[in-house]
């Protein structure tokens, strides 16, 4: 876990006259599980989109697996890195199988039909996420949580070494959340690098090894998740008076929600 999967150097992104990101510098080691946290509107999603080249930074440099981002063709980049955006609430007009198969696009040529490898990859991820029984159902007919699992399955079907996930557990009930994080944990154990944007500090603390916290469009904290779960750090990043409790099984620190009398 020493070689960098992602290197971001002094990245800036400007929208109109507003600097969304400025001088963001961070490194993600290959095989790491990093959570990106921070207050609303701080640029977390923008950062992921810059990494996936959906948005073009106004300055700075990004290196993916040792190669500069502009040197990649988009399809080649997608073979190495996959991205799950936040849901835009527009449901794609496909069946579950068709949608997950779209994840195999980087491996297809223009007129090619589905190969045995593509079929196997899709069946594997559908089985892993438990969406196989819905194979022939329209995405419209699924609940929000079920649909989210299918979207994650499609991102995994790409077979990339780096996964960028924007709020992957949104819409999910606790049981489905557990299943998703278990799957992500297994993928990470298999060597997949995971970068996850989340608002849930406890999920970040429980599941990721490292945390990057953004504040005012720049990196306020970057380090081990244990080092992040400190009262002074959370005060700096979120402006909250944090109280903690240790997780009974893992011993990791968790934030206690503020109670009201």
């Amino acid at each position: 876990m020493s070689e960098a999967a992602l290197d971001v150097h002094q990245l800036c992104f400007r929208r109109g006259r507003h600097d969304v990101l400025h001088d963001v510098t961070l490194s993600v080691a290959a095989g790491d599980f990093v959570s990106i946290v921070g207050p609303n509107g701080v640029g977390k999603t923008t950062l992921l989109k810059c990494l996936m080249r959906i948005l073009t930074p106004s300055a700075g440099r990004v290196t993916v697996l040792g190669k500069e981002l502009p040197a990649y063709r988009q399809r080649e980049l997608a073979r190495h890195m996959s991205y799950l955006p936040q849901s835009d609430h527009r449901v794609p007009p496909f069946t579950v199988y068709e949608y997950v198969m779209l994840g195999r696009y980087p491996h297809l040529s223009p007129f090619s039909t589905v190969s045995a490898d593509d079929e196997a990859a899709v069946q594997t991820v559908m089985g892993r996420l438990g969406v196989s029984p819905w194979k022939d159902r329209d995405l419209h007919s699924l609940s929000g949580g079920e649909r989210q699992k299918v979207l994650i399955a499609a991102a995994l079907a790409q077979g990339a070494e780096i996964l960028l996930l924007d709020e992957p557990a949104s819409f999910l009930d606790p049981k489905h959340q557990q299943e998703i994080f278990r799957t992500l944990g297994q993928l990470n154990a298999d060597g997949v690098t995971i970068v996850m944007v989340t608002h849930d500090i406890n999920s970040a603390a429980l599941h990721s090894r490292s945390i990057v916290a953004l504040q005012h469009g720049t990196v306020e904290f970057a380090g081990a998740s244990e080092a992040f779960m400190q009262a002074d750090v959370l005060l700096r990043v979120f402006d909250i008076d944090a109280k903690f409790v240790d997780h009974p099984q893992t011993g990791r620190r968790l934030l206690i929600p503020e109670g009201q009398v």
């Binding site: 988009q74 399809r75 997608a78 779209l102 696009y105």
Partner: peptide
């Protein structure tokens, strides 16, 4: 158009997903 059918499927889903799957 025949050359870009896979891309059309992905554009139907939205630009963010299409780009992340490798569509320019």
């Amino acid at each position: 158009v025949a050359f870009l059918l896979h891309e059309l499927n992905l554009l139907t889903v939205g630009d963010d997903i299409a780009a992340s799957r490798g569509v320019d």
